Structure formats: structure tokens, C-alpha cells
Amino acid sequence: MFEIARYDGEHRLTGSAVLGVGMALLAALVIWVYPSFGEAFEDADALLEAYPEQIIQLFDVQTMASLEGFLAFELYMFGWIILLGLYVAYATAGVIADDVERGRMDLLLSMPISRARVVGEKFGAMVVPIVVVNLPTPFVVYVGSRLIDHPVAASDVLAVHLLSIPYLFACAGIGLLASVVFDRTSIAQRVALGVTFGLYLFESLLAETDSEALGAIAPMRYYDPNAILLDGQYDFAGVGALLAMTIGLVLLSQFWFVRKDLN
């Protein structure tokens, strides 16, 4: 059982570890910069007034006067919501399309295994990068915040990473659907990137407008680092929405691939 998921997961382990270290280094850099930033700008929030309102809305900047707000903007909005969201969508977009394009899928399906199981296990292998990338950074943030005398609550640091996992799985679901719809890996990956980033823009620009409800289709709606780090609010209803979104995308991908003509 789960031979495909185990095989693919093991081959993603090294790259995932490198990515995790890279994100941890990014966190260390953000924390190291913060004291200098605070000293250079006595009222850091006054600096936000120089930014166009559209930029503030696009990146949901709440405050940069505290380390929590600085981390939410500089690390989690850019690093987790945008960069990692795009990365997992891009990486997952190749899990089926690459095997189809290179002719390996026919060999795989010659074994006594269903197409639905292939899709499910290929998606399951994405557990490795999604979990591994979230392992080192919480320790860096927790320890680093204390080294600069701006301690961040351990529960909030843990929550901002744990609650990012359902969000990243939802982004991976977008990539999976692109992977079964398109046979060429490059096209599937470009579509996954475009759709994921497009949903981010869509949700951000519709916030606080009459059409705000339309942004409910975007995974970004349900993961808010500002609420977690600044207010200690954990959106468990959002977690449920992300899990439902992920399950729906996986089931749709399986349905599509089962009926897809590979010839």
C-alpha cells in the first residue's frame, strides 16, 4: 500500500529539506533586520502612509510597528502565502503531467492499480514538502524573537505554521487539477502558477468591496497570518473550508483522470 506515495515522497525529501532551510534563513534575516528597521523609523506605521492604498490592500499590511506585524508582512505574506503557495501549485502540477508526457504513465497503469489511486498517491507525496518546509522555521522565529527581546508567543508561532498546512494543500490541489487536465508539464505548471496567483490577486482586490463574497473561492481567504500573530485568532472554520476545497479538487482530479484518454 502507498508504494507510489512513498517512492515519490522519498525523492522529494532532499529538495524539501533544502527549501525548509532556505525559508528558515529567510525568517532569520527578517528577524535580524527588524531592530534596525524599528530604530530607523520611530513610527514604523507612519511609513505605511507612503505606500499606495492598493499595495496596502494587496498585501494586507496591518502594522510594521511590532515584530508580529513585521513577520506577518515580510515573512508569511510573501514567504508562505505567495512563494510557497506558488511553489506547491507548480510542483504538484507536474506529478501526473510529467509521467504522461514522458510515457511513464502507461507503464505505471499496466500494473494492477487504478487511475484514481495513482492520482491520490501522487498527491499524497506532497505531504513531504508541505510538512518539511514548516519544521525549522518555527524554531528560528521563536528563538530569534527572544534573542532580539521581542518575544512572539509560542502558541501563535506554532499556529501560523500548522494552519498554513491546509492552505498549502489547497494550493497543491490547484496544481493537481492542472496536472490531469494538461498533458504537457510546462503548460500544466504555467496554468497552476497563473491560477494560484490570479486567485490571490482576485481575493485581495475584492476585499472590502461589494463583490467581496466572490473571493471565497480563493484559498488565501482562509489563512490570515495577521489574525494569528497580531490578535491570536485561529480560524478553524477556515481550516475546514480549505480541507473541503482540497478534497473537492482531489476528487475532481481523480474523476477527470479516470475518464481521460491518454492516447
Rank of each mutant, 00 (worst) to 15 (best):
E3Q: 07
A5Y: 00
R6H: 00
L13D: 01
G15H: 06
A17N: 00
L19V: 04
G20Y: 04
A24K: 01
A24V: 01
L25N: 03
L25Q: 02
A28S: 03
L29D: 07
V33Q: 07
P35C: 06
S36E: 05
A40C: 01
A40L: 09
F41W: 01
A44Q: 09
D45P: 06
A50N: 05
Q54D: 01
M64D: 03
G79E: 04
W80H: 13
L83W: 08
L86E: 06
A91I: 07
G94Q: 04
D99T: 10
E101W: 05
L109Q: 09
P112R: 15
A116V: 07
R117C: 13
V119Q: 14
G120D: 13
V128Y: 00
P129Y: 08
P129W: 08
V133W: 07
G144M: 02
L147M: 08
P151L: 15
A153G: 02
A154Y: 14
L158Y: 15
H161C: 10
S164C: 13
S164A: 15
I165H: 11
A170N: 13
I174N: 13
D183I: 08
D183S: 14
T185G: 09
S186I: 07
V195A: 13
G198W: 03
L201C: 09
F202W: 06
G215W: 02
A218Q: 12
M220S: 15
D224W: 01
A227W: 00
A227E: 08
A227G: 10
L229A: 15
L230Q: 12
G232C: 07
D235R: 12
F236V: 11
G238Q: 04
L243M: 04
I247N: 02
L252W: 06
L252E: 03
F255Q: 03
D261H: 10
N263G: 10
N263Q: 10
